[in-house]
């Protein structure tokens, strides 16, 4: 059974002005996310991708269609806590997610709300902080940390609830290169080492290629769904919806057009370098 299942979901925000009906933020959207997957959701600003994050754990409820979390319909209020415990969400601005004034007390916030035993909370908090590499900062005040460090604390706060799926809504958009790298490493660890399903919403191509699967959103709809290699093979389509193709893909494309026999599924820098190396040595 899928951990998150969107079935024909349509959602629109209410307008501040009376009588004005806004266009749907998500339209006829269907997607099934399986346990253990690492899915990246790509799309430009306003494509509806952030709304998905809020629909996936019942923060928003669909106008049409339904969202199932581990089989539970998000519309059922009695499952609300269970749903939020199953699917944790990390948002873009790390400053606005940290509640407490001490790192470890913030990480404990979720498990405390769930009414978990103090000794068990302690264990979870320590583990979560170690997973994101922030254990040594556990006694610090959050305002003294860098953006990347704060975001890792926010992630730890979600891990401590032991969700089976974590959705990250542009968690790196406000960070510098070092912060982005550290957060990215923490996210990969969640999926690869802890087996948590990860849904990673972003507009950075270099980050999306790390996922097992990429879902592309445009104009409130799902427009592409496949492995990174499949998705980026259609460079023209990606560019037509205002997204970038990784420079490595562009370069490989140009060289292939000149008859240089590079493979057509090169994404990472290392893959490209290896392939160039092989070809040159072979000649």
């Amino acid at each position: 059974m899928a951990i998150i299942k969107f079935e024909n979901v349509t959602f629109r925000y209410e307008s501040d002005e009376e009588g004005v009906v806004l266009a749907p933020a998500v339209k006829d959207f269907s997607l099934s996310i399986e346990k253990g997957e690492f899915v990246a959701i790509l799309g430009h600003n306003g494509s509806g991708k952030s709304t998905l994050a809020k629909l996936a754990n019942g923060l928003l409820l669909p106008e049409k269609g339904r969202v199932l979390v581990d089989g539970m319909d998000t519309i059922n209020e009695e499952d609300d806590i269970k749903i939020k415990q199953t699917v944790g969400v990390v948002f873009q601005n790390p400053d606005n997610q940290i509640v407490a004034t001490i790192v470890e007390e913030d990480v404990a916030f979720g498990p405390e709300n769930l009414g978990i035993e103090p000794t068990e909370i302690r264990r979870r908090v320590d583990n979560a902080l170690k997973t994101v590499g922030m254990y040594e900062y556990r006694k610090h005040g959050p305002h003294k940390l860098s953006g990347g460090q704060k975001q890792r604390v926010a992630i730890a706060g979600i891990i401590a609830m032991e969700p089976r799926c974590i959705i990250l809504d542009e968690p790196t958009a406000m960070l510098d290169p070092i912060g982005r790298r550290d957060v990215m490493n923490a996210i990969k660890r969640l999926n690869r080492e802890l087996g948590i399903t990860v849904v990673f919403i972003t507009h950075y191509m270099e980050e999306a290629v790390e996922a097992d699967r990429i879902v592309v959103m445009d104009d409130s709809r799902l427009v592409m769904d496949g492995t990174p290699k499949e998705v980026f093979a259609d460079a023209d389509k990606i560019r037509s919806i205002g997204l970038d193709v990784p420079q490595t893909c562009q370069l490989a494309d140009m060289l292939r057009n000149d008859g240089i026999k590079l493979k057509n599924d090169l994404l990472s820098i290392d893959e490209l370098v290896e392939n160039i190396d092989d070809l040159l040595k072979g000649q």
């Binding site: 510098d176 270099e206 420079q247 490595t248 820098i269 290392d270 490209l272 370098v273 160039i276």
Partner: peptide, 14 residues
């Protein structure tokens, strides 16, 4: 700690 374009990284590695 600065990021360089991906393409630059390819050439550093080469």
């Amino acid at each position: 700690g600065l990021s360089v374009p991906q393409i630059t990284e390819v050439f550093i590695k080469l």
